[in-house]
Design a protein around this nucleic acid. Structure first.
Lengths: 194, 194
DNA sequence: AAAAGAACTTGAACTAGTTCAAGATTTAGG
DNA sequence: CCTAAATCTTGAACTAGTTCAAGTTCTTTT
């Protein structure tokens, strides 16, 4: 049965909801189970949803012309994930968004989000805060990419996301940090030796 | 006299304001003239304001330990600029934000923003939309940084910001794109020859 | 219009990180 | 428990982009 108490509790950290608001929000949410390696968003299709991870892990990646994968976003429990360029402007996606583990998500569709915002403008605040926080962390990521060496970016990643490091295969971490899996292998070897 | 019609018109593109809302918003905005090379935000001080560029150009940059500058953000007319990590969480800044030209800005302080949002929650929507759009473009920037060569990043920059290219000194463009001014010089030479 | 300061260019030597290829290890599924 | 698939490792050759240093050009100020 779909009891949305987990995501409702999460939302209540940002805005206090009345019972009516909770119920309406709940009615707009769709719960899904996603198997490992399954995609929830693919290039050329419009990202219809933003997804809140209840359990499991996802990544968003770009497949470049030479066939290399570049991980743009990762998400574990209590993170949202989507192709924002696609979702916000309702244009075709460029990212693949793939489950890295068997996962459970709560999805909010673009149309339902509009309904929600129209009916209860209080939710504007939720999405304002969420996107401001994402913006701040994305800006920190750009800073690190521009000014830190591969080794330091990896150190910071371990420090900032200790829970994520051991759950993700290393080729995903490497492609998130902007270098190759071979190079990360060398960095790790060096760390162990030191 | 401070006539805020320009920024008010800008805001009205996103949310329709009543006269009362316009006046209140207007009362919370401070207009300033900033000379070229003057700073509006410096590391270790909390970013008290977000600034809307009425006229001129700014950049936000990081000074790394080896003394190199990394441009994180640029802004011309009708763009907002601040150190978001500092502003949103009201913690010490890490960026310098510097006027690249003699400029005019309209500033909204963090405290005034809270007042504004409390009194007229309609403004939640404005800041939600603005930060979502910034988030989308920041995500595009990360994609390009991870998957494109220096040359292609420069081509895309020219294509996406044609008005900016000729206004900024090339060392700023290079540091925004993540390479050296010497290398950009070589890229430009190659383009002219081709 | 001279002088000083910013910004840009050029080339040669260098290095952080890539590429490729082959083997070793771990994980998942039936 | 066995097999196939996925992931990780290692080393040698390579390259995109850096560094440094010196000279040139453009801008600003007086």
């Amino acid at each position: 049965m779909n009891d949305n108490s987990h995501i409702i509790k999460y939302v209540n950290q940002y805005i206090e909801l009345t019972k009516e608001e909770e119920d309406y929000f709940s009615s707009l949410i769709t719960n899904k189970s996603i198997k490992k390696r399954q995609y929830i968003i693919q290039p050329d299709f419009v990202a219809k949803n933003r997804s809140f991870v209840l359990d499991g892990a996802f990544r968003g990646y770009l497949m470049c012309t030479e066939g290399k994968e570049h991980t743009i976003a990762i998400a574990i429990e209590n993170w949202w994930i989507t192709d924002y360029n696609s979702y916000i402007f309702q244009q075709p996606a460029t990212l693949f968004i793939e489950a890295i583990e068997n996962s459970k998500i709560a999805q909010l569709s673009y149309d339902n989000e509009q309904k929600l915002l129209d009916k209860f403008p209080k939710f504007e605040k939720l999405f304002r805060i969420l996107s401001q926080q994402s913006l701040a962390s994305t800006q920190r990521r750009i800073m690190s990419n521009l000014s830190d060496s591969a080794e330091i970016r990896y150190e910071k990643f371990i420090r900032d996301y200790p829970k994520v490091v051991n759950r993700l295969p290393q080729y995903i971490i490497a492609s998130y940090l902007g270098f190759t899996t071979e190079y990360l292998s060398k960095i790790r070897k060096k760390r162990v030796e030191a």
